[in-house]
């Protein structure tokens, strides 16, 4: 009978369960340094998206990636970047002391702010930073209309 009597305070409350859930999600999505949970599985390069009146630029940090392993495609107003960061050639008898860098394949889908001309897309990779420049389509570029003086 005594088994059934648990002090109220010891029971997990809804809010503490909620907190634990939040922590779990944080660990999973942010890959906090304290956990080795999902270390390689959730890798994706961080990217910046910016625009000017006539072009859209996407930059991504992809240190250690072979530019040949990157696949860029545009479907409608969506940019898709896929790639795989491979571990350096396997050497025999490698003994790791520290492994902070991430490896694995990723895919990122970016909604573009405007329609772009798929024939005018350039992608450049320099010092581990990928830069994709896309020209906006003529019809979406802002037009300046000058007012005629009558």
């Amino acid at each position: 009978m005594a088994k059934d009597l648990i002090k109220w305070a010891q029971l997990p409350t809804i809010s503490s369960m909620q907190e634990e859930m939040n922590r779990m999600f944080d660990r999973f999505f942010k890959g906090g340094e304290s956990s080795d949970f999902g270390m390689t599985a959730t890798w994706a390069p961080p990217l910046d998206l910016s625009e000017t009146a006539d072009k859209v630029t996407v930059k991504a940090e992809i240190p250690g990636m072979d530019p040949k392993e990157i696949d860029i495609s545009i479907q409608g107003d969506t940019l898709i970047i896929k790639g795989e960061k491979k571990e350096e050639k396997e050497e025999k008898g490698k003994n790791y002391y520290r492994m902070e860098r991430r490896y694995g394949s990723f895919s990122r889908v970016v909604d573009l702010p405007a329609s772009v001309d798929t024939n005018k897309v350039t992608a450049e990779c320099k010092n581990g930073v990928l830069e994709i420049t896309m020209q906006k389509k003529e019809e979406v570029k802002p037009k300046q209309i000058s007012v005629k003086v009558g």
Binding site: Y97, R101, R102, G128
Partner: peptide
């Protein structure tokens, strides 16, 4: 920056991610 350190029979290797650095 993030880094990997590993040991092989002859060397220690340190890899450091420094995107954007010349």
């Amino acid at each position: 920056p993030q880094s990997d350190i590993y040991e092989t029979p002859d060397n220690f290797t340190i890899l450091i991610d420094m995107p954007g650095v010349d």
